Computed example of a mutant assay.
Amino acid sequence: MGRIFLVLFSLLSIDAAAQDMQRIKDLANNFSHENLVCGAYYLFVSQCIKNKSATDPVATQYFEGGNTFLKRGIETGRIAGVSDKALNAKVEIAIEEMKRDTDNDCVNISVLYQQHAYSCKATYEQGPSTFADKLSKMGVR
């Protein structure tokens, strides 16, 4: 009887570990997606600013922010097991949606601002610590 309990307990522990790993992957995938969309948004805004004024330093700030988002998105996407193809597809889909939402005209950028500015700013400033906090609450250090 003791052996059966030990075997069942071991199986339950393995199952719990697999569930924990899946939750970590899901969390990383969600954080990756959020960063990839924000990266696409920042790069889109950067291009719109450059189209209006090629030397505007704000365009460079948005471009650099976009690259930071993309780097985070790729790194956490890989933790989640997302392929490079899928990571690229997520960015391309986000950009296509942004083009559609603005009728492919930067004069309509306020639509994207309303959809993304606040959440992306929060993700840029607090995203890594929020992600780390969530991992910590799951018992990951």
Rank of each mutant, 00 (worst) to 15 (best):
residue 75 E to V: 05
residue 83 S to Q: 13
residue 66 G to H: 04
residue 92 E to P: 00
residue 78 R to T: 14
residue 72 R to L: 11
residue 71 K to L: 08
residue 56 D to P: 06
residue 87 L to R: 06
residue 72 R to N: 09
residue 80 A to T: 12
residue 67 N to G: 02
residue 61 Q to E: 11
residue 63 F to E: 04
residue 56 D to E: 14
residue 78 R to A: 06
residue 85 K to P: 00
residue 57 P to C: 12
residue 69 F to Y: 09
residue 69 F to D: 04
residue 88 N to P: 00
residue 77 G to N: 13
residue 88 N to H: 15
residue 61 Q to D: 08
residue 81 G to V: 13
residue 65 G to T: 13
residue 87 L to N: 06
residue 84 D to W: 12
residue 67 N to C: 00
residue 93 I to L: 06
residue 89 A to R: 11
residue 88 N to A: 15
residue 82 V to Y: 02
residue 64 E to I: 01
residue 73 G to V: 01
residue 84 D to A: 14
residue 86 A to D: 15
residue 84 D to N: 13
residue 80 A to W: 08
residue 86 A to L: 15
residue 75 E to C: 00
residue 82 V to G: 00
residue 69 F to S: 05
residue 77 G to T: 15
residue 62 Y to R: 04
residue 92 E to D: 12
residue 84 D to S: 14
residue 56 D to V: 12
residue 64 E to K: 09
residue 64 E to P: 01
residue 83 S to H: 13
residue 83 S to T: 15
residue 58 V to R: 08
residue 89 A to Y: 14
residue 60 T to Q: 11
residue 65 G to Y: 13
residue 82 V to K: 03
residue 74 I to P: 07
residue 77 G to W: 13
residue 81 G to A: 10
residue 56 D to T: 06
residue 63 F to Q: 05
residue 76 T to D: 02
residue 66 G to K: 00
residue 81 G to D: 06
residue 69 F to V: 06
residue 62 Y to S: 01
residue 90 K to P: 01
residue 67 N to A: 01
residue 79 I to R: 03
residue 81 G to H: 08
residue 68 T to F: 07
residue 90 K to D: 08
residue 90 K to A: 09
residue 87 L to F: 07
residue 61 Q to R: 12
residue 58 V to C: 01
residue 71 K to H: 10
residue 58 V to D: 05
residue 82 V to I: 11
residue 70 L to N: 04
residue 72 R to T: 05
residue 88 N to L: 14
residue 62 Y to Q: 02
residue 81 G to N: 07
residue 86 A to F: 13
residue 69 F to T: 05
residue 68 T to L: 11
residue 85 K to S: 15
residue 69 F to N: 02
residue 81 G to M: 11
residue 68 T to R: 06
residue 85 K to L: 14
residue 93 I to G: 03
residue 80 A to P: 06
residue 64 E to H: 07
residue 73 G to Q: 05
residue 81 G to R: 07
residue 63 F to D: 02
residue 68 T to A: 08
residue 91 V to G: 04
residue 57 P to G: 09
residue 66 G to M: 02
residue 66 G to E: 03
residue 88 N to S: 15
residue 83 S to G: 10
residue 74 I to T: 14
residue 80 A to C: 11
residue 66 G to A: 02
residue 73 G to A: 05
residue 92 E to R: 10
residue 80 A to L: 10
residue 74 I to W: 15
residue 70 L to A: 09
residue 64 E to L: 06
residue 62 Y to F: 11
residue 81 G to L: 09
residue 57 P to W: 12
residue 63 F to L: 08
residue 71 K to T: 10
residue 56 D to G: 05
residue 90 K to I: 07
residue 62 Y to M: 10
residue 89 A to S: 13
residue 74 I to E: 14
residue 69 F to H: 06
residue 85 K to R: 15
residue 87 L to W: 04
residue 91 V to C: 09
residue 89 A to G: 03
residue 67 N to H: 10
residue 69 F to L: 05
residue 92 E to C: 00
residue 63 F to W: 09
residue 85 K to G: 12
residue 60 T to R: 08
residue 93 I to R: 08
residue 85 K to V: 01
residue 65 G to V: 00
residue 75 E to T: 14
residue 92 E to H: 09
